[in-house]
């Protein structure tokens, strides 16, 4: 850590902060993946978590996932609400016995010293109705602020986890704001430089927040989105059907492409929801439809090479 140039230190730059987390989890034997190339509401949707959490094979991975929450857009006016932000996601299967300790060490790696800060594990049961998933764990508090989500997956895509995977999700902007000591997300120092070379989070994302807020709340093409939802749903089913090898439900050859359509449907639903064109009663039925897709994908996945029992 001492060898790091100042501008790369986690408390100085957002990118240095992310790199420190990546390096830490790489040292723990995780594969460091790059973000999934689709729009999704949370890092959990990444197939490296949702699908890889299923089946008996070992799997340790960490990655940054840009997360889209169309409803959370505030036209760039709220100091910490964003419709696009970064999650850092760690998944370890089976959950190692020292996962809590590893988590605390990862905080130390980004400059949060547990002899100075009050770090707490506060009950929080996690459930994702759209993914048909639930787990038990905590929200992790640092000096009264929720900084991460810590979950032992019990069920994902309607399938029991055996073995159980441990999942950590860090809200990167919020943590970085704390470490850098800024109150407004757009004031985060992105590149760790000062003066003319300094690039802030606002320089990178403020315009995007304004534009996407306009899009999400006022202009997104609902008619097209409704069609896209149906198309994604149909495609998902079609690929799942076609993926069963020799038409027998023993081995599946196309779980990943099918799951992409599930991710798609979920994001399209979030866009429609933000646009306010889905009524309260319909809302429930859309969530159910996405869950059915997720479940079918989970079922297919456990019949693939990576998801299958040996």
């Amino acid at each position: 850590m001492d060898a790091l140039p100042d501008h790369m230190r986690p408390e100085r730059s957002f990118q240095g902060f992310i790199l420190a987390l990546q390096r830490f989890w790489a040292e723990q034997g995780c594969v460091i993946l790059q973000p999934y190339d689709m729009e999704m509401g949370a890092g959990t949707f990444h197939p490296a978590t949702t699908l890889r959490a299923l089946g008996p094979k070992r799997w340790n991975a960490a990655y940054v996932q840009p997360s889209r929450r169309p409803k959370d857009g505030r036209y760039g006016e709220n100091p910490n609400r964003l419709q696009h932000y970064y999650q850092f996601q760690v998944i370890m299967k089976p959950s190692p016995p020292n996962l809590q300790d590893l988590y605390l060490k990862s905080l130390a790696a980004i400059g949060i010293d547990s002899s100075l800060h009050d770090i707490r594990f506060v009950e929080d049961d996690w459930e994702s109705p759209t993914l048909g998933a639930w787990g038990l764990g905590w929200e992790c508090w640092c000096d009264g602020m929720e900084v991460s989500q810590f979950t032992y997956f019990q069920q994902v895509a309607g399938v029991e986890c055996a073995p159980v995977a441990g999942e950590l999700t860090y809200g990167l902007e919020r943590l970085a704001m704390y470490v850098q000591g800024v109150d407004r997300v757009y004031d985060l120092n992105f590149n760790g430089r000062e003066g003319a070379d300094k690039v802030t989070y606002g320089d990178v994302f403020l315009q995007a927040e304004q534009e996407y807020s306009r899009h999400n709340f006022e202009h997104s093409d609902s008619e097209m989105l409704f069609r896209q939802f149906t198309m994604a749903e149909e495609a998902c089913r079609k690929y799942l059907e076609a993926g069963w090898k020799d038409g027998k439900r023993e081995a599946h050859l196309m779980a990943l492409p099918a799951y992409d359509q599930c991710i798609k449907a979920s994001h399209v639903f979030n866009l429609l929801d933000a646009r306010g064109v889905i009524s309260v009663t319909e809302r429930q039925s859309y969530i159910m439809r996405v869950r059915e897709l997720a479940k079918a994908c989970g079922e297919a996945w456990v019949h693939t090479e990576a998801g299958r029992a040996v």
Binding site: P56, P94, S95, P96, P97, D125, G135, L136, Y152, Q154, C161, A162, P163, V164, G166
Partner: peptide, 13 residues
């Protein structure tokens, strides 16, 4: 009220 499984052993019933 709610309990969970964890770790290596949770692979087995």
């Amino acid at each position: 009220p709610k309990s969970m499984r964890w770790g290596e052993r949770s692979a087995k019933s």
